[in-house]
């Protein structure tokens, strides 16, 4: 038996509303991601990408289907809100379009707080936070508040926060949307580096086709339907368009 998959999402369907107001945001989505694999999820706005991330991120439960993270089937397992939240803080890291740092915490505290939430001693959590910030090149800015950091620096702190508890899965929703192309590519490269260094699976929702070469696997989503594709196919569509 091989190593368990970092993520195994099977037949995920999400329906909002009911009756004549019913909207199917995602239908029968299936995705398998290995540890250390970097996955891009492409698709136009409203295609259902964020819905997919919310479901596999255990924030919004799917109407149908199952999610297994690190070999643990979540839908059949811990079902209370508290249990899901605990599982989330121990196994999943999040990075979003806006840096989403807690505004009243400094850079290092933003990372440290995640460690403390899983019960690490403050000194241990802080040391780990400093290591990660140093590793991601923002160690010198660790005491700055989020408003004192540039967009790229904020995203690096967010990535450090996502890595703080050594999760098996990082979910990133358009993390480069607020960055210029150079910084955007740096962040994408960062995901690849941390994925390979820490063995973390990363799923990145992106519109940015310029950095697709950093991804191991590419998925596309349109009208709630998820399909796996290739670099060539995506680039071909783009040039045809």
């Amino acid at each position: 038996m091989g190593e368990p998959l970092a993520l195994e999402a099977s037949g995920l369907t999400k329906v909002y509303g009911h009756g004549h107001t019913e909207v199917v945001a995602m239908r029968d989505a299936t995705m398998r991601v290995r540890r250390g694999e970097v996955v891009a999820l492409l698709g136009p706005s409203g295609a259902g990408k964020s819905t997919f991330l919310l479901c596999v991120g255990l924030i919004n439960p799917p109407t149908r289907g199952s999610v297994a993270i690190g070999g643990r089937l979540i839908q059949d397992g811990p079902d209370s809100l508290g249990d899901l939240r605990r599982f989330r803080r121990e196994h999943i890291g999040f990075v979003f379009q806006k840096s989403n740092l807690i505004p009243f915490l400094s850079a290092v505290e933003n990372v440290q707080v995640v460690g403390e939430l899983v019960g690490k001693a403050p000194s241990v959590a802080r040391r780990r936070a400093m290591e990660l910030l140093g590793e991601l090149g923002v160690g010198a800015r660790s005491l700055n508040m989020p408003t004192q950091l540039s967009g790229g620096e904020q995203q690096r702190v967010t990535v450090a926060r996502a890595l703080a508890n050594q999760p098996s899965l990082i979910l990133a929703d358009e993390p480069t949307a607020a960055l210029d192309s150079v910084r955007g590519r740096q962040v994408m490269q960062l995901f690849r580096d941390v994925s390979h260094t820490h063995g973390t699976a990363v799923i990145v929702v992106t519109h940015d086709h310029r950095a697709l070469d950093v991804f191991d696997t590419i998925y596309e989503m349109e009208d709630g339907v998820l399909t796996q594709t290739t670099h060539a196919s995506v680039l071909g569509q783009r040039s045809a368009g």
């Binding site: 605990r86 121990e90 505004p103 707080v113 939430l117």
Partner: peptide, 18 residues
């Protein structure tokens, strides 16, 4: 004023008691 940070704390797994 801090609904967003609270949502963020929940997202990163902070328990309700925090």
């Amino acid at each position: 004023d801090k609904l967003h940070p609270i949502a963020l704390l929940k997202l990163i797994g902070a328990p309700n008691r925090t």
